[in-house]
Simulated assay, not measured.
Amino acid sequence: MTISVADVLRGTKVVLLDFDGPIAALFGGVSATAAIEELTAIAAAHGYDITAEGPPQFVQKVSQLGDEELLHAITDAARDAEVRAAASAVPTPGARAVMRAARETGRRVAIVSNNAPAAVSAYLDRHDLGQDVDLVVGRHDGLAPRLMKPHPYLLTLALTSLGVPAEAGAFIGDSVSDIEAGRAAGVAAIGYANKPGKRERLSAAGAHAVIETMTDLADALHAAVGSA
């Protein structure tokens, strides 16, 4: 039996959104290569040869080394790189509509990201979206990297902060780690397949539903109205 996105959203009281992908392409205006090269150089200065897909992944890799001095330096540099990137991040079509649809249907909105909260907040301020978001939870200073997604900690923290039980939440993310985190936290996990092949990967990871545009999600929030 096929379950529609609207069916998945029935009974939800909070929409939890990943940032990089569902809300914006963080490095859509500038190449992530420069940020990774900067982090790689810092690691090299400490005697390590490391590279990763993006700043969050770099932080996670460094955390496995047990070098606290390097981890602190990398965490600070990754945050600063993300904040700079937020100034030219490219909005995801339909993301604003999702936030407004959530508001219009009586749901709260939280952004739960492995990116630094400062970068997310900078983006929201730049695009005048702060009033549409109740909470931002991310890779804050002092957070043990092992608690980043796919660990459910950040999602659970958001739910606890908003006073909402897991069964009343739905998390939308564009990566397998997002789906794994959502399922581990006990919320409905909706995959955002914004690239070829993602629908299959997100479905295989256990997504309760998959969307291909954020507008689809906005429409589903309205379709499920009356049951939230």
Rank of each mutant, 00 (worst) to 15 (best):
E38C: 06
V98D: 06
V98Q: 05
V98E: 04
T75G: 04
D67H: 06
E37S: 13
A41S: 14
R100W: 04
K61V: 10
R96S: 07
M99C: 04
S88Y: 02
V83Q: 09
S88N: 07
A97L: 02
P91M: 07
D49Y: 00
I36K: 14
G54W: 11
A87Q: 13
S63N: 10
E37G: 04
I36L: 15
A45R: 13
I42D: 03
P56R: 08
Q64C: 01
I74R: 04
M99A: 06
T92N: 11
I74G: 01
V62Y: 02
M99P: 02
L65T: 04
A86D: 08
P91T: 05
T75D: 11
G47K: 03
A87S: 13
V98L: 07
L71Q: 14
A77Q: 04
E37L: 13
A89V: 08
I50L: 15
I74D: 00
Q60E: 10
A81E: 09
V98H: 05
A81M: 09
V98M: 08
T92K: 14
R79F: 00
E37M: 12
A52P: 05
A101K: 06
K61M: 13
E37N: 12
P93V: 08
E53D: 13
A44D: 09
Q60N: 05
A73V: 01
V59H: 02
D67N: 10
A35Q: 10
Q60M: 11
S88T: 14
A95Y: 04
V90S: 03
I74L: 02
E38S: 12
Q60C: 00
T51L: 01
A85D: 10
F58W: 06
A85C: 08
S88I: 01
P56A: 08
A41Y: 01
